[in-house]
Simulated scan of single mutants.
Amino acid sequence: MKVMIVEDEMLLAMELESEVEMAGHQVTGTAMNREKARDLMEAQRPDFAFVDVHLQDGQTGIDVGRDLASKGIPYVFVSGNIKKIPKGFAGALGAIEKPYTVNGMKNALSYISAIVVGDEDVAPPASLVLADDV
């Protein structure tokens, strides 16, 4: 699975990139703001994205999410405050709250991978708050 990471905290982005690659997926790029995220979407369409709500250019992660949803690209918000995510999660599958554990992220990534390939019979991990649950 090709994964795009939208995160303005470089250490968190690098950690997430490492976890994605250790799980056998390819990171297509990392964006720290909405413009860079749009450029990455156009250059290499990802199969999935992790999106922080607050980026270098403000609360634009929600807009990035809407951009992804408009292109049919599934994504999950990764945020320190999931209460800032709008009702309906702006088209996201769900959210992972920071700080997250490596094991929690690994379980979420396994679930997301299954969903992206069409396996609807997997149970979501506790680390992932589904949009339908709010």
Rank of each mutant, 00 (worst) to 15 (best):
M1Y: 10
K2L: 07
V3T: 07
M4E: 11
I5H: 01
I5R: 04
V6F: 04
V6H: 06
E7L: 04
D8K: 10
M10G: 00
L11V: 15
L11I: 14
L12W: 01
A13T: 02
E15I: 07
E15N: 09
E15K: 03
S18W: 00
S18R: 09
S18P: 00
V20T: 03
E21F: 00
E21D: 04
M22I: 04
G24I: 05
H25G: 01
H25K: 09
T28K: 03
T28L: 00
G29I: 01
T30K: 02
E35G: 03
E35T: 10
A37D: 03
L40Y: 01
M41H: 04
M41T: 07
A43Y: 05
A43T: 15
A43E: 15
A43N: 11
Q44C: 13
Q44T: 15
R45A: 06
R45Y: 01
P46F: 00
D47G: 14
F50Y: 15
F50L: 14
F50D: 01
H54K: 13
L55F: 07
L55K: 02
L55P: 00
G58F: 09
Q59T: 10
G61K: 05
I62A: 08
I62L: 05
I62H: 07
D63F: 10
R66V: 10
D67C: 11
L68Q: 00
A69F: 01
K71A: 09
K71Q: 14
K71T: 01
K71R: 13
K71G: 02
G72P: 09
I73A: 08
Y75K: 04
Y75H: 13
Y75R: 03
V76F: 06
F77A: 03
V78S: 05
V78W: 04
S79Y: 10
I82W: 05
I82T: 13
I82K: 06
I82R: 08
I82P: 07
K83R: 14
K84C: 00
I85C: 08
P86N: 11
K87T: 15
K87N: 12
G88P: 07
G88V: 06
F89T: 02
A90L: 02
G91T: 05
A92Y: 03
A92M: 11
A92I: 09
A92N: 10
L93T: 02
G94Q: 09
A95C: 12
I96K: 05
E97M: 11
E97D: 08
K98C: 11
Y100H: 13
T101H: 09
T101Q: 08
V102Y: 05
N103W: 02
N103L: 07
G104Y: 09
M105W: 08
K106Y: 06
N107R: 12
N107A: 13
A108G: 07
L109T: 06
S110I: 06
S113M: 05
S113I: 05
I115L: 10
I115C: 01
V116D: 00
V117E: 14
V117D: 11
G118V: 13
D119M: 06
E120S: 10
D121V: 05
D121Q: 12
V122P: 01
V122S: 12
V122M: 13
P124S: 09
A126E: 15
A126L: 11
A126M: 07
S127I: 13
L130C: 12
A131R: 14
A131C: 14
D132A: 15
D132F: 01
V134G: 07
